[in-house]
Nucleic acid binder design. Sequence first.
DNA 1: GTCTATAGACGGATAGAC
DNA 2: GTCTATCCGTCTATAGAC
Lengths: 190, 190
Amino acid sequence: MKAEIARSEILAAAAGMMRQVGYSDMSLRDLATQVNMKAGSLYYHFASKDELVTEVMRIGVEAVEAAVRSGLDEHPSASPQERIMAAVTVHLDTLLKRSDFVSSHIRCYPFVPVPVRERLREVRRSYDQLWLSLIRAYLGPEASTDDVRYLRQVLIGALNGTLEWFNPERDSVTEYARRIETFLLPQKPR
Amino acid sequence: MKAEIARSEILAAAAGMMRQVGYSDMSLRDLATQVNMKAGSLYYHFASKDELVTEVMRIGVEAVEAAVRSGLDEHPSASPQERIMAAVTVHLDTLLKRSDFVSSHIRCYPFVPVPVRERLREVRRSYDQLWLSLIRAYLGPEASTDDVRYLRQVLIGALNGTLEWFNPERDSVTEYARRIETFLLPQKPR
DNA sequence: GTCTATAGACGGATAGAC
DNA sequence: GTCTATCCGTCTATAGAC
């Protein structure tokens, strides 16, 4: 019981540190300090740093995917465009306001050791597929594979790029989402 | 003379390593090995690791900005939309095929020490201004500050996001640029 | 479960020979 | 200009006491 609580605290603190300072500069000493422990104690809960890091990042993807799916479920009769916009809003909201797990995943993924990346392949692929299906539905059956792939990359780029400039005290998620709709999804597939 | 050559070699190797492994995991020992030197010798050319890193990243921004400006100068009578697309193409091309300096800048900036980020503020601001003026010209004088800012962020996000998926052997820069135009800049400002 | 203590590797940086 | 040699700090990880 107590182990589960401590484990959760460690994961949450790790997510915050990873987002801020990156994979390599998150030291287990600093992490332990932040949860009122000593570095060695962390090894009771995790076999290694990479095990811990993998877990943080895995929680991140699963969190956005779950949030987006449940957001979509709330509006079962939405049009393809409305569904994309719902996904955009929930993704942004989770990324920017709710979850260090998501933002640490996005920021750290490029620099994390290869074995960690490999262990995350499946969860990432699953979330990718969700977006591809949303975009396929929006562009319609006559769209090419590249149409779908490239629109997905433009969208994800615009969403995840917020990590480098969005200031929750100045900017509004719904405002930015509205611009994305105006700029990217005027009204009908072209 | 010889110093200048060695210095350039070091910078180029550092850019490649930074792009691949990030700021913290680029060790001066590894860097030195790659240019057939010993770690201590690097200090003849640079006062510190952060000095070297700052220089790599400074070269990066200045390189894209110069490339984009010269690309724009080639078509003086282009429309605002054509000018944005010229900038998009050159930015992508520089980022993806020509310069480890640019990609290392984009990838490492979030995790580099604060003093390094501060020393890069001016060059980054200068490149930002270029994009803002291009977008202002495209959206027209009746567009709000937020219209301009947000479109800029969508664009830059879509461009720099390529770093995480673009495969030069599979994908084409002009192809992706064309999609950006279709998706984002249909024909007229809205 | 968490601690102390420490092993063992590797990091940036410096001094002085050549 | 580049090298050798080294200082000193920090890192992940482990062993064993409590």
